[in-house]
Write a protein that binds this DNA or RNA. Structure first.
Ligand SMILES: [Mn+2]
Ligand SMILES: [Mn+2]
Length: 243
DNA sequence: GGCACAC
DNA sequence: GTGTGCCAACGCATC
DNA sequence: GATGCG
C-alpha cells in the first residue's frame, strides 16, 4: 500500500508509505509508528504543545542518518522565531493531536521541542536536566545520579519530573515561571549540575569524552534553540521515552 | 515528503 | 496526471 | 575556520 488513512479525533488523516520499514531489526513500519502516537497522543502532545519543534526525520529508517529540519515549509502551523544566529525563520508549533500525527507522517520518531513556548519564546518554562551515561555505564548509573539530582532540587525547593530518555539515560524537567532568559536558565542548570558533581562520584560535567567517565550532566541542552526528545518519543533503539 | 514546474 | 529537480540544522566548547 | 559533541 502506498497510502492509507487513519482516524485522528474523528477526522481522516493521510499517511503515505504506511508499510515502509522504519525499524528493520524489529520489523516495525511507519504505520506502527503512527499507531504508537495515536495510542499515547495526549501524553505526546503535552510534551510538544505550543513549542517550536526541530523535525528529526528518519526518512530511510533508523539504519540511516536522520534529516534535521528547523524551517519546514508547508507545515500545518508555523510560528515566526528568531534564532541565536539572528536569522529569522518559521518553525512548526504543534497545538493539537493531528499535529503529532503530522510529525509521524514526516517520519519523525523522537519529537524535539524547545524549552520555551510560543507565547514567550525568549523565556524557557522548563529547566531540563539531561543525564547521559558514558559508554561504560548504563541506566542504573543514571538512576543513581538522578537520586542526587532530586536531593539538590529538594534543597533548592524545586520539583523535578523524571522520565527515561529511551536510550540509556534519564531526563528530569523542572517547571519554571517564564521569567529568565536562556542564558540564565542554562547557568542555573550548570550550577545545579556542579553541585550534583560534588555530591556524587559518578556525576561529571566534563565536556570532552576523554575526560568523562560516569554520568554526563548535559546542561548545555538548555541553550537557545537546543532540544531534548520529549515524552513518548520513540528512540532509534525502539525504546520509548517514558515518564 | 512536498512543492514548483515542465510535459 | 506523471516525471524531474530541488530543498530541508545548528549551539556550545575548544584550539 | 575547523573539530568534537550533542
Ligand atoms: Mn540524553
Ligand atoms: Mn545529551
Amino acid at each position: 500500500m502506498s497510502e492509507t488513512t487513519v482516524d485522528v479525533g474523528g477526522e481522516p488523516f493521510r499517511i503515505s508509505s504506511p508499510d515502509k520499514v522504519m525499524f528493520p531489526e524489529q520489523g516495525w513500519t511507519k504505520l506502527d509508528v503512527v499507531e504508537h502516537f495515536l495510542m499515547c497522543v495526549d501524553g505526546a502532545l503535552r510534551g510538544v504543545r505550543d513549542r517550536p519543534v526541530l523535525l528529526k526525520r528518519w526518512n530511510r529508517g533508523v539504519g540511516h542518518d536522520p534529516l534535521f529540519v528547523k524551517r519546514p515549509k508547508g507545515a500545518p502551523r508555523l510560528v515566526d522565531v528568531t534564532f541565536p544566529s539572528a536569522r529569522p525563520g518559521q518553525m512548526f508549533v504543534p497545538v493539537d493531536e493531528s499535529d503529532v500525527i503530522w510529525m509521524a507522517q514526516q517520519n519523525c520518531l523522537d519529537l524535539n521541542p524547545w524549552n520555551a513556548r510560543a507565547r514567550d519564546l525568549q523565556h524557557p518554562d522548563e529547566l531540563r536536566i539531561d543525564l547521559d551515561p558514558t559508554d561504560e555505564f548504563d541506566f542504573e548509573a543514571a538512576r543513581e545520579v538522578a537520586h542526587t539530582v532530586k536531593a539538590v532540587l529538594d534543597d533548592a525547593g524545586l520539583v523535578g519530573w523524571p522520565k527515561t530518555s529511551g536510550n540509556r539515560g534519564i531526563h528530569i524537567y523542572v517547571r519554571l515561571v517564564p521569567e529568565w532568559d536562556f542564558y540564565e536558565v542554562r547557568r542555573a542548570g550548570l550550577a545545579l549540575s556542579r553541585e550534583v558533581e560534588r555530591r556524587h562520584e559518578l556525576a561529571t560535567t566534563a565536556w570532552w569524552k576523554e575526560e568523562r567517565s560516569g554520568v554526563f550532566l548535559d546542561y548545555n541542552q538548555n541553550a537557545w534553540d537546543k532540544t531534548i526528545a520529549s515524552a513518548y518519543s520513540i528512540r532509534h533503539t525502539g525504546l520509548v521515552s517514558t515518564p
